Amino acid sequence: MRPLTVMIDNDQRLREIQRLRAAAEADRESLLVRLGKTSLSSETIIGVDGGLRAVMQRVAQVAPTNASALILGETGSGKEVIARAIHERSHRHDGPFIRVNCGALPSELIDSELFGHEKGSFTGASNARRGWFERADGGTLFLDEIGELPLAAQVRLLRVLQDGVLQRVGSENQIEVDVRVIAATHRDLPRMVQSGEFREDLWYRLAVFPIILPALHERIEDIEALAQYFIERAARRLGVPTPPLHRQEIRQLSDYSWPGNIRELGAVLERAVILGHGRYLDLDAALGVQLLNPVKNSHRASPEINEKTTVESLDIIISAHLKHALTQTYGKVDGPGGAAKLLSLNPNTLRGKLRRYRIDPAKYRHR
């Protein structure tokens, strides 16, 4: 039992370090904004005159108000960028912008994370702590993956949204907060409301102004500009010359389906810059020829292949690719030398893909 105890203890310590780091980063960014300095996390929005034209029109409409907004879109499609755009165009732009990933909050600590706690309110609460709502006072709180929030937490969130007051865990005092909430999810919230997984009253409160974010394959006209941006950013990060982007490579990028959306595009192009040593884009190796859509990229593709066959084949290929990465890293998922680093994926994203394809990293640790 001792190895299991050590593993649980290490996991709890890691979560605490990650929480403290997130809190410190939020406070640092808030201070930068209040000092009038540019936030390091602000991102360029590409496609304002292309595939995001309708989205940016919605942003311009809702930003000057205090209304809640709900951003709906696939994972990796840029929901946080749009949330920041709303904040920066609002009268709250001098206040903090704080992002909370609801899916990453441990269920037993959700109240403490969102609303704070008093010293001694539970085991491990050695000091009083402000929650994310208090930290976002006067600014914007971005609740990413709101669909992952448990029902009990949804009730308490609704009260804060309605009344503008909260109570820290272990306290009877009410604290007033002035926070604008922007929520986002890749899940089908209306279906979750019907099935009882998401509160209907919270849905109406959050979806005052919904914004639907298109997937990357629906914004083909933006591929070239996005690619150029990511190539230049990767070259700056790596300290290498910016490789050219040729017509054939733009066509190749446009032909790919991009299941990981903009996040995947950025990762692929950074990998292509690395593999090409800054002199050229090694796009074939970065994408992996086996990951290209077989219908669009094979001259000998059978005309009888239907859409269902293509999707099933792609799932098999992606599963094999993930297994190959785990083989190369001996089952290590996170950290230096891990599969997430090798694949240029966020560790949580990779773990989600491993669950989806029912791949157990432990099977690869002793090979």
Rank of each mutant, 00 (worst) to 15 (best):
E197K: 11
I231K: 04
D284R: 03
F122R: 03
N293P: 14
L226D: 03
L322D: 12
N101C: 00
K332Q: 15
V177S: 02
S171W: 11
I317Q: 14
I318T: 15
D144W: 01
G116A: 03
P150E: 07
A104L: 09
S90Q: 13
V295C: 11
G331K: 05
F115H: 03
R19W: 14
V62L: 12
E108F: 08
K341G: 12
L109Q: 08
R58Y: 15
F198E: 05
L105N: 01
I359P: 09
L245T: 00
S41R: 15
L206F: 13
D27Y: 09
N173A: 14
G337K: 10
D163E: 11
G73A: 03
G276D: 02
K296M: 01
I250V: 09
A24V: 10
A339C: 10
R199S: 06
G288L: 00
A267I: 00
R365F: 05
G196W: 12
L322E: 05
E218D: 14
L342V: 08
R99M: 14
A301G: 09
L213R: 07
D282Q: 07
G131D: 01
A54T: 09
L292H: 04
G131L: 01
I212C: 12
R271V: 01
A285P: 04
R15H: 15
G116P: 05
M1T: 11
L161M: 10
I212N: 10
V177C: 05
R187Q: 14
E118H: 01
E88N: 11
R356Q: 09
Q154Y: 13
K296P: 03
V295M: 14
F97C: 04
L105H: 05
T140I: 07
G266E: 00
S30Y: 06
P244S: 06
A362M: 15
H91G: 06
V268C: 10
V273H: 07
A104D: 12
A339D: 05
